[in-house]
Amino acid sequence: MADVKYTDEHEWIRIEGDVGTIGISAYAQEQLGDVVFVDVPAAGRKVAKGESVAVVESVKAASDIYAPASGEIIEANAGLAETPGDVNTEPMGKGWFFKMKLANKSELDGLMDQAAYDAFVKGLS
């Protein structure tokens, strides 16, 4: 079972070995509404923790997605170009944004686990 963690920007990262898969949470997609476009980073791009790497857009809003850790992008979800609605229907599944090779897994130590994130979201409403 892979390890899933959350940022306070409502991104999730699934950690498998030294590869992280990143997307946005069910709560985040609900706040955005119908997702119409996701600008995903190109494979090979090196990113620093906290750098803006992707943009997710609904009709009336655009949100930046920040790299939860440093590393190199190894794959972007090409399917989102055709079906951005996957972010709404399967935010943790087909709606993933990109995969990256993690340079330093300890950077993820401060992130929330599922229970902590659930409590965080509950505190927002």
Binding site: F37, E57, S58, V59, K60, A61, A62, D64
Partner: peptide
Amino acid sequence: LSTREQHIRREK
């Protein structure tokens, strides 16, 4: 495609 525009994207 209004998310390119100033009233939504502001400084970006």
